Computed example of a mutant assay.
Amino acid sequence: MRIALTGATGTVGGQVARLLAPRYDLSCLTRSPERAAARLPGPGLTVETDLDDISSLTRALAGADALLAVTFDPLRDTHDEHLLTAARRAGVRHVVKVSALAVADPGAQDAITRWQRACEERVRASGLSWTLLRPRAFMSNCLDWTRSVREEGVVRTLHGSSANSCVDPRDVAAAAARALTSPACAGRAYALTGPAPLSARQQAAQLAEVLGRPVRHEELTEAEALARWRARYPDALAAALLESADRQARGAKSAVDHGVREAIGREPGTFRAWARRHGAAFRTEEAEAVGNAVEKAAEKPPAVPVEAQTSA
């Protein structure tokens, strides 16, 4: 069985590659094979292509049986259309789309969620067999706090007491790996959450327990949070993230679903367990470099956010 992956150097795709490489023929689609090769579990896995070029995608997907579709840019909504067009032309039979749990909430109308809904609609209408993975926010988003925790013992967020049933990316990757290889997952949408809702204040407290030193939470104002997002993303995405954070403050992201158990047959991982695996990143730069650099690189968020990774 041949499996094609997009986003193979990102939060989920890299872990999917490591899970599947020992048993399946993988093609990791990327614009930068040399850079991607350093993050993948073995040589010869990369195929150079471009999500803006249907012809190159069709060539890259030739012979693939299944495709993991991870796209990153809500401001360029053609990437999913190109992938699906190329997949049909190349004879791909099954596509697994990483979406976001926010799409199931009628009250979620921010620009990023609307983009994810449109992506799902394209998958459903593609004529291909499909599986939809809808994660809540990734626990790995907390890696954005590493510097402030190391240097100040501080986590700063907006709406720090609001809860999110965030999910371990490792569980999302395991669900993706099964969906790519098991016909039993076809035609299903999995709501992927952690085992309990947590606020940023609670996450900071658990980090403190793992690290053995104080970590406090400081509340950002709405203006401060928006300024931080605008420094990283276009204004339209920053506004969407603010709208999503306000929805979380109203309790929209605290529900726990059973999609992880349904997809992979075990309970989802806890935030405390995730924090233990990544504790070195929050201690010192030296410890991070020695103990956690490779895994952290694999979980680094993309330049433009998938909604699930930032705010689902």
Rank of each mutant, 00 (worst) to 15 (best):
C142M: 14
C142W: 15
L143E: 11
L143Q: 12
D144F: 11
D144V: 11
D144R: 13
W145E: 15
W145I: 09
W145Y: 15
W145R: 13
W145K: 14
W145S: 15
T146W: 04
T146Q: 10
T146F: 05
T146L: 07
T146R: 08
R147N: 06
R147L: 14
S148Q: 12
S148R: 05
S148N: 10
S148P: 10
V149I: 13
V149W: 06
V149L: 10
V149R: 04
R150I: 05
R150V: 04
R150D: 01
R150C: 04
E151G: 03
E151P: 07
E151F: 06
E151I: 08
E152M: 05
E152W: 01
E152P: 00
E152R: 06
E152G: 03
G153D: 09
G153W: 02
G153E: 10
G153Q: 05
G153C: 10
G153N: 06
G153Y: 04
V154P: 03
V154K: 06
V154W: 05
V155E: 09
V155K: 06
V155Q: 10
T157F: 07
L158T: 01
L158P: 01
L158D: 00
H159W: 04
H159Y: 05
H159F: 08
H159R: 12
G160R: 04
G160Y: 00
S161A: 11
S161W: 03
S162H: 06
S162T: 10
S162L: 06
A163R: 13
N164E: 13
N164V: 15
N164L: 13
N164S: 14
N164C: 14
N164A: 14
S165Q: 05
S165A: 15
S165E: 10
S165W: 07
C166G: 13
C166Y: 03
C166F: 07
V167N: 03
V167D: 00
V167R: 02
V167Y: 02
V167S: 04
D168V: 07
D168H: 11
D168M: 09
P169F: 08
R170C: 00
R170P: 00
R170W: 07
R170Q: 00
R170M: 00
D171N: 12
D171Y: 12
D171C: 14
D171P: 14
D171L: 12
V172P: 01
V172E: 01
V172A: 04
V172T: 02
A173C: 06
A173W: 01
A174D: 01
A174E: 09
A174S: 11
A174W: 00
A175L: 12
A175V: 10
A175Y: 03
A176R: 08
A176L: 05
A176Y: 07
A176G: 03
A176V: 08
